[in-house]
Simulated assay, not measured.
Amino acid sequence: MNTWQNIIKKRMQDIGETQESLAEKLSVTQGSVAHWLSGRRKPDTDIIASILKAVGIRELIINADGSAAENNTKNKLNKNNFQIEVLDITASAGAGYLNSDVKEVIKLIEYDSSQAKMLFNGMDANNLKVINISGDSMQGTFESGDSIYVDVSKKEFNGDGIYVFTFGKSLYVKRLQIIKDKLIVISDNKKYKEWDISEDEIDQLYIHGKVMLSQSMLLRKHG
């Protein structure tokens, strides 16, 4: 199976890039690069994006089974399969990211029809988007660097759950719950205090979608 590590190592060989020179570009140690490329450690997806940029790979497709291909193979994808766009947006599971803080991660994930039926239960692929998250306030449910699958057809609060939303000028991924007349914003990491959005502040809230699944090493259902 061709993995993203294999693609990076082949590109490094082609352009004469060493682990030492790549580490210098990334401002990390050569040991970190060696661990990432060997698969001994799993970097966050924003680190993978930085590695791709450093070696001149503009886009990479990472499939659900861990296989990968440069985006010049995109036209060979089976159009009958279930394809989900991956957006270059980082949502905060922490203090909040400004909307302008974007990170290129991956561009397309493809599932065959049987996988899609099992995972997405007949959902329209056009309503599902994948984004990367950063921070530790949802630790235990998500880890920093996880990818989350967001149902962007859910633009309003429709029951307790985890949502991607903008409040003020920041983009968050948090658990939302209505208690009395207030919308409570909850972090699953208990070291973070919950906060609320009052009726007077509701015009500052824009819900982008509801989180349905997340993916790190495992795919987990949330809705």
Rank of each mutant, 00 (worst) to 15 (best):
E85T: 08
I62C: 11
L108D: 11
I15Q: 04
G159C: 00
M217D: 06
N63A: 15
L119S: 15
T90S: 11
E70C: 01
I179Q: 12
G159I: 03
K182F: 06
K180Q: 08
E110L: 08
N121G: 10
V33L: 06
N189V: 13
S114V: 15
K155E: 05
M1Q: 09
N6V: 12
A69R: 09
G122R: 14
F165S: 05
I162C: 10
L60S: 03
D196A: 12
R175E: 01
G168C: 02
L219M: 14
K174E: 02
G56F: 03
W4H: 02
R175F: 08
N81M: 13
L176C: 04
T141H: 08
A95V: 07
I131V: 15
Q215V: 11
D200V: 04
R41G: 02
Y163N: 06
Y163I: 01
S27E: 13
K169G: 01
L128N: 06
G140L: 12
I7W: 03
K117V: 11
V173E: 04
E20A: 15
G94K: 06
Q115V: 12
Q115L: 13
D44T: 15
R220L: 12
G56C: 08
V33Y: 03
R220K: 11
S67N: 12
Q215N: 09
L218C: 08
Y192H: 13
V152E: 08
Q139G: 14
A116R: 15
K107H: 08
D151W: 04
A93P: 06
V173W: 05
S67V: 02
G96E: 14
D88F: 06
I162G: 02
V28C: 01
K180D: 09
